[in-house]
Design a protein around this nucleic acid. Sequence first.
DNA 1: TTGAAATTTGGACGATATCCAAAATTCTCC
DNA 2: GGAGAATTTTGGATATCGTCCAAATTTCAA
Lengths: 141, 141
Amino acid sequence: MSMDTVFELSPKKVEYIKFINGKNGPVKTNNIAAGFGVDPSTITKTIVELADEGLLVYVPYHGVSLSVKGKITAEFLIKRHRILALALTHFGFSHEQACLEVSRFESFVSKEAIDQMCRAMGHPNKGICGDITHDDGCLRI
Amino acid sequence: MSMDTVFELSPKKVEYIKFINGKNGPVKTNNIAAGFGVDPSTITKTIVELADEGLLVYVPYHGVSLSVKGKITAEFLIKRHRILALALTHFGFSHEQACLEVSRFESFVSKEAIDQMCRAMGHPNKGICGDITHDDGCLRI
DNA sequence: TTGAAATTTGGACGATATCCAAAATTCTCC
DNA sequence: GGAGAATTTTGGATATCGTCCAAATTTCAA
């Protein structure tokens, strides 16, 4: 996964990363599975992939946490969601409508586009489903 | 395919429908295949699916044309692209940047969202890659 | 009419996401 | 500390999407 494609996660992976980010400490497989109404084995398979991509620290049978890279990714995913939803409110969308609509397509929007929109909106701090933070979303180790 | 999901076409199908829309008369398999740099058999398989969905009139070995439903769909797809690209220019995107970015995610944006954005922009007639037409995108037969 | 070109068919693959059943592991309680 | 319960993983299967290749079919053109 190159620098440019770091955030090209599938929609489901995006949701899982955000879910894990919203929990404290290691998250159990059944917890995620229950959160999305899917079989635990589905979660196991996906978290193994996310761990292989370096986004999760996975201890089999004990749960997952975000790696540093995963945390930075999660922060970008949240910012992306909030910037896009905020942008839609500029077109008269209600908060719910904006959130719902953005969830349909956010996974396919590039970091460059988000940066541009963020800049154009003057780096807003208030999103419609939470605050917006402004690190640059790039991982340097 | 219900009324609500008429426009839930995959990204590739969206591209193929737009491509066929841009040609006069029946379009040959090799023409589409060359346009996208894929094997002709890939096109055959996809156009059979689009014909099954009622969007194309397909005469094996002789080419495809848009059905009435396909034409209306194509017009919506084009409008969606142009409305979204125009919206991005409001955030400082260049025309090329906007077009390119929209092509990443347009397939996942609902008709309702486009209607809302179109309304908010005052039903603009000038898009950035062509004019915008304002039928309602619903097929009634 | 016959060989070349175009097209379709059938089979395969990889990626994504899902399920189920069986095996493995961990936990809990006595 | 052990036995049974709960959790998790593994392995296999399915489905969709988009793709390729090789072989068969059909059409076209000289």
